[in-house]
Design a protein around this nucleic acid. Sequence first.
DNA 1: ATGTATGCAAAACATTTGCACCTGG
DNA 2: CCAGGTGCAAATGTTTTGCATACAT
Lengths: 138, 138
Amino acid sequence: MLESKDLRKVGLKVTLPRMKILEILESRSEEHLSAEDVYRGLMDSGEDIGLATVYRVLTQFEAAGIVARHNFEGNQAVFELNHGTHHDHMVCVECGGIVEFVDEVIEERQVRVAGEHDFELTDHSLILYGRCSNCRKR
Amino acid sequence: MLESKDLRKVGLKVTLPRMKILEILESRSEEHLSAEDVYRGLMDSGEDIGLATVYRVLTQFEAAGIVARHNFEGNQAVFELNHGTHHDHMVCVECGGIVEFVDEVIEERQVRVAGEHDFELTDHSLILYGRCSNCRKR
DNA sequence: ATGTATGCAAAACATTTGCACCTGG
DNA sequence: CCAGGTGCAAATGTTTTGCATACAT
């Protein structure tokens, strides 16, 4: 559970908007929220925080390594808390559902491929698109 | 080399804008062009084709399987001709350079992961970000 | 106190769409 | 001829920014 000191640790002042946004992200940590989603979450909680602030804060959190931003197909980016363990995503093109996974062999191979091309790997994005088990039944 | 019959084959009328856009994509097939890039290419060749048409045509080409669209980091999508062989991308975060690669082990693993989750795989996107060999020398 | 954050409204982009006109088959 | 394609301008949707005010330390 992240708190004030975690914000200070990364050099961010502890403000109400930042704490509230952290709360939303934590309370819905199994989801992948767009800036809009976070904003609506705040409104529903009666918080009066601007959408621009949501964008600014999420961007700062990303820079600080607190959240990860993903550009799945479609227009808007989604965010999720970085709970330590790296993982990739599988997105259902029918229902939008998301499954997270990790495959050590793929991870290793990526490092090897980068090495073969003298690339200093800083990050990667792997997204599998398809139809999830639920949608396939219909 | 793609030509008129390839357009007819996928049910698209052979029009001047479509042919010109195909030409641009072919003449710069090592690059990954944004819609803007294609548009400027057309302007530079003295063609008077609207940006809206470029977007429409690229979208149709994608639907027809003639081109692939990629959402690298940043805002605008890039397009490249589908020259048969599937491949993934490594993007240099410093110079923007792109290296294409294929790793059979990764490909296999993706299929296996999808299978484990009862996912019917339709597509995937793997992008490695880092600093390329040239940028590392500086 | 003072540098940073925030809210609001406006701007900036990338992309899409409506519509009257043009064109390929 | 006529369905489909195109150009232009306007609309859309997401994200960013300018600026005056409010707040954390």
